[in-house]
Nucleic acid binder design. Structure first.
Lengths: 139, 139
DNA sequence: GTCAATGTTTAGAATAGTTCTAAATTACAT
DNA sequence: ATGTAATTTAGAACTATTCTAAACATTGAC
């Protein structure tokens, strides 16, 4: 169980004010194991822990944490954004049925040599998503 | 320039009625080189060619074509869906600045061995997206 | 501690992309 | 040609997200 101070320092070192809401959300996000959450999920979790926070703040905070490099945003489903507390290099399983993400450790997937990025541009990131379905879902 | 008949047959062989709208949209999609389109883009293109088609039909058709294996849907950006006329195995560049997709030919990227899919499930697809930004967009 | 200045949060409205609905139209087998 | 089933449509509805501007909290100077 990390002390409150840990989160306050973490937030401050990212260049953000450690407000009540940001501290509370950081606790939910970074207290335990790595997580993959949607804004709505995190908001509901906050509500069910009786935290006083608005949905708008959850969105703002997730984006600010992402900007600050504390989270990584992942596009697997066009309907919602996922945020990953693991910002190390790794890739994802996407379990289509229940809309959940899982990590694929780095090393499991290796990318061969890529074409150069056009002049004036650079590669920002490489995302691999392995989508998993029910095996009886044949076509 | 492929004949009208080509598209009619293509649509029919996918198990769909070759309606005026589906034929027109198939022409836009499959007439020339491989394309990556959003629903809105295809709709505007149809409008500017004076086709009489509704946005709802564009959405329906894109999904039906996808179901039928004529298109592949790609999630790169949580705000919109992209549809790719190239259904062969390959991966994508995503040019963040202008929201455009580009193909990475198969062979450029190789995936090492993956963990087994859990029992009762299987791998549906593997998508690699290489996101490209402006190089002056540093952080 | 108090205060002012600045940054943050909030509820609710607004927006964007997409899906739904039910009425009108079209396709096609007979 | 006709009837039935499939398709299309306009517009409403919906969902995730962002915006707005007023209320509130945090910080640093005193």
């Amino acid at each position: 169980m990390r002390p409150n101070n840990y989160f306050i320092e973490y937030i401050r070192s990212a260049g953000l004010c450690p407000t009540r809401q940001r501290i509370a959300l950081a606790k939910l996000l970074f207290q335990g194991d790595d997580r993959h959450v949607t804004a709505e999920e995190l908001y509901n979790e906050a509500l069910s822990e009786k935290m006083k926070v608005s949905l708008a703040t959850v969105y703002n905070t997730l984006h600010q944490f992402t900007e600050a490099g504390m989270l990584r945003e992942i596009s697997v489903d066009t309907n919602r954004s996922y945020f990953d507390t693991n910002t190390r290099k790794h890739h994802h399983f996407y379990f289509e049925k229940d809309g959940k993400l899982g990590d694929i450790p780095d090393g499991m997937i290796s990318i061969g040599k890529l074409p150069e990025a056009p002049n004036g541009t650079k590669i920002k990131c490489i995302d691999v998503v392995v989508t998993i379905t029910d095996s009886n879902n044949d076509y």
